[in-house]
């Protein structure tokens, strides 16, 4: 069964902007799915329609087989949404916000209180439970929205750029939390501008541009499309000359750093063997740039060649 099934989704706004031009998308139950795209591509419109805050112009949306045109409330019951912008009352306490949200889903106060304690504790908000939401930091506000979306324990959780503006340490802890939620069976759909985030968390990925899905595949299959990967090599000792033949396009950026390119036909062991033979000791290495980011830019450029 699909957690989310979208067929031929169309959206034309009142200003005649054609935001979605027949989007088809399937997200499997239990998946951790990335929906990527540049600003204005249509990601938030899709999320808006699925969460019933935006009216679609055409097409079908099903959440766990509940057609939103026929069984809207059943579909809503399965769905939790963490929006991009803060959308809770600035005058209520954190606890009031999540208890009210649970109440809207018909969850009794006692059970809601237990869930609030569970999620606030997991997200590091328990100490702040009685504070007014407006006094929270940006990262805490994001975590509060995640806790709120989980109060009715949805089967499908949609996160619209959940880590935007969040510091690195907090972002990593949110990744761990979301992975735990996914492992308990919750399907997660994530939009993000941090492509590293999608690469680390998601099993499947769709890329949307100008209202159309231009790629819909597994993360592994997508990354395998990348022909050449560049690595930065930190040397244990300084090196002055690069030995020939230079089949890895080795170049020196400073005495203690080399950069190398590995094509799809080569493998990293060959690089290590080559360097070891040349007497070059490597202290550490890393990808020069985010692989997914490179692919993302390439895919967008393929669809919209410069000059178009």
């Amino acid at each position: 069964m699909f957690a989310l099934e979208i067929n031929g989704l169309q959206k034309v706004y009142k200003n005649r902007m054609h935001a979605l031009k027949g989007v088809d998308l399937q997200v499997r139950n239990g998946d951790f799915f990335a929906l990527l795209g540049p600003n204005g591509a249509g990601k938030s419109t899709i999320i808006g329609i699925v969460s019933s805050l935006v009216r679609k112009t055409g097409g079908k949306v099903k959440v766990f087989n509940h057609d939103m045109d026929i069984s809207l409330n059943e579909a809503k019951s399965c769905l939790g949404v963490v929006p991009q912008e803060v959308n809770f009352s600035q005058w209520e306490s954190c606890l009031e916000i999540v208890l009210n949200q649970a109440g809207y889903y018909g969850i009794p106060r006692k059970l809601a209180g237990e869930r609030a304690e569970k999620y606030f504790t997991q997200l590091g908000l328990w100490e702040k439970r009685n504070d007014k939401s407006r006094t929270l930091s940006g990262g805490m506000k994001r975590r509060l929205m995640i806790a709120r979306a989980l109060m009715h324990e949805p089967r499908l959780l949609i996160l619209d750029e959940p880590t935007a503006g969040v510091d690195v340490e907090l972002r990593r802890s949110m990744w761990i939390f979301l992975q735990q939620i996914n492992q308990t069976g919750t399907t997660i759909v994530l939009t993000t501008h941090y492509l590293e985030e999608a690469e680390n968390l998601c099993k499947n990925i769709a890329i949307i541009d100008k209202g159309k899905i231009i790629e819909d595949t597994t993360m592994k299959a997508l990354l395998s499309k990348l022909g050449t990967q560049s690595y930065v090599l930190d040397l244990a000792q300084s090196c002055t000359t690069i030995p020939a033949p230079n089949q890895f396009n080795l170049r020196q950026t400073d005495p203690l750093t080399l950069e190398a390119d590995i094509t799809r036909d080569q493998n990293i062991n060959e690089l290590f063997l080559y360097l070891s033979t040349a007497g070059i000791n490597i202290a550490s290495m890393r990808n020069k740039s985010n692989r997914l980011e490179e692919l993302f830019i390439r895919l967008l450029n393929d669809k919209n060649p410069p000059g178009n």
């Binding site: 805050l53 809207l72 059943e74 809503k76 019951s77 959308n87 809770f88 600035q90 018909g106």
Partner: peptide
């Protein structure tokens, strides 16, 4: 403040 969305996305 857009917190009306809390109600609109819920099955109320």
């Amino acid at each position: 403040q857009r917190h009306i969305e809390e109600m609109l996305i819920a099955p109320i």
